[in-house]
């Protein structure tokens, strides 16, 4: 069981990293109730991180509610990090994922935290990764991360989750198309939710055909999250994946390294654009002395130069 004190400290630690006040290590040092679970002499098993992603309105939150129920029934504690989008205009957000998870509100073995995406693009919030690590340190056995409703390109969950469930619904013809294009490579389990609706079997068959073309074993399941149908099968599939090898860790690390390298490159390019050499090129562009392509070539040359200088 997780003490009330831990809930409070975990919540405040997440706020601290979310607001950029301190980093993950700083938060751990400051909120001492965290980490107490791993301070013993025996090494504690790290939390298993389950990612739930899929298009908006597919029933992700309701499914998470069912998973909480199943995980608790198995005697494990669970933290949920649920991300909803921030408005790009006002930066405000309405975070409504808790509405579907109210049954667990009084259970100290369950911690639910909503996060606004704060305009990060990958389906998660900038601090989600740290929030997951903090929940792990707080001693939760399972951490469930629910992404914002996603399309094809929001794949950030890869860097965070050990097992990824991609949820879709029938009659979302285009939704299945989107999943084919984007989320296919990251799914460990496909779920066709709202399986009592027309077209569920067709969607599932469609996904099964696609899965058969790939190399990995990806179960395609049907659920009705609203009444719990199919959830035991989903829990069984999740447990099998959790007990399996850690090949996703390799994928996660690759993804994170590439992402960091890309961020670094962007910072480098922005810095290079700030140099007098680059300003001179841009001045000549403005004065019609260079074509756009000439300017790009010239700047590329400058970037190359600064890269070598490092």
């Amino acid at each position: 069981m997780i003490a009330h004190r831990v809930h409070r400290d975990l919540a405040r630690a997440i706020s601290a990293v979310e607001n950029g006040v301190t980093d993950y290590r700083g938060a751990l040092a400051r909120f001492t109730a965290l980490g107490s679970a791993s301070n013993g002499t025996t090494a504690r098993k790290r939390a298993d991180v389950i990612g739930i992603t899929g298009p908006p309105g597919a029933g992700k939150s309701t499914l998470v509610d069912r998973l909480i129920e199943g995980v608790r029934a198995a005697g494990e504690t669970v933290a949920v990090i649920a991300v909803d989008p921030s408005s790009p205009f006002t930066h405000g957000a309405v975070l409504g994922d808790r509405v579907r998870m109210q049954r667990h509100a009084g259970d100290p073995g369950v911690f639910i935290r909503s996060m606004a995406s704060r305009s990060a693009g990958g389906g998660l919030a900038p601090a989600t990764r740290d929030a997951v690590r903090l929940a792990d340190e707080a001693g939760f056995d399972v951490v469930i991360v629910e992404t914002v409703g996603v399309g094809q390109v929001e794949l950030e969950i890869v860097a965070v989750a050990d097992v990824i469930v991609v949820v879709t619904v029938p009659a979302l013809g285009d939704g299945v198309q989107a999943i084919k294009a984007g989320l296919t490579e990251i799914a460990d389990i496909f779920v066709v939710n709202m399986a009592d609706r027309p077209g569920a079997n067709a969607s599932a068959t469609d996904l099964k055909h696609m899965v058969r073309e790939g190399k990995r074993d990806i179960p395609v399941l049907q659920t009705i999250a609203q009444d719990g149908t199919g959830v035991p099968e989903l829990l069984a599939a999740l447990n099998k994946k959790r007990d399996g090898d850690d090949s996703n860790a390799v994928r996660a690390v690759r993804f994170e390294i590439v992402r960091r390298a890309r961020d670094e490159a962007v910072r480098g390019a922005l810095a290079a654009l700030d140099t007098p050499d680059a300003a001179a090129v841009l001045d000549r562009l403005r004065d019609h002395e260079l074509t756009r392509n000439d300017a790009i070539d010239a700047l590329q040359h400058i970037f190359g130069g600064t890269a070598h200088a490092h």
Partner: peptide
């Protein structure tokens, strides 16, 4: 939200 706040909404019938 439109005033720029992050609003957690919990639904009805809360204890």
């Amino acid at each position: 939200r439109d005033a720029g706040m992050e609003v957690v909404y919990t639904g009805l019938h809360q204890t």
